[in-house]
């Protein structure tokens, strides 16, 4: 699966969870926490993105995700 597709899906869900956010602030190098997402917001973004992409990633594997780039990378490896 194309990395851009995964990123755009993450971005769409970040904006759904945090609708007040400027869309341009969601970038590969940013973190969800810096964008204002709390722990449940972050988990929401992950489950929504997995569902949109039809992927299933065991929860434990998200331990090492620290920014949007590593989230996209993890999802890409499972795709």
């Amino acid at each position: 699966m194309n990395e851009d597709v995964i990123f755009e899906t993450v971005k769409r869900n970040v904006l759904e969870v945090l609708p007040d956010l400027e869309p341009d602030r969601v970038t590969m190098t940013g973190t969800l926490t810096d964008l204002g997402a709390n722990s449940v917001d972050r988990a929401d973004v992950v489950t929504m993105t997995m569902e949109d992409l039809g992927l299933v990633v065991p929860i434990a594997e998200f331990r090492d995700v620290h920014d949007i780039a590593s989230l996209v990378d993890l999802l890409k490896r499972q795709a």
């Binding site: 929401d44 489950t47 990633v57």
Partner: peptide, 12 residues
């Protein structure tokens, strides 16, 4: 169908 897709907020 897919328990992984339960919304994270469900537990709240």
């Amino acid at each position: 169908n897919n328990p992984e897709y339960l919304p994270a907020r469900f537990a709240l």
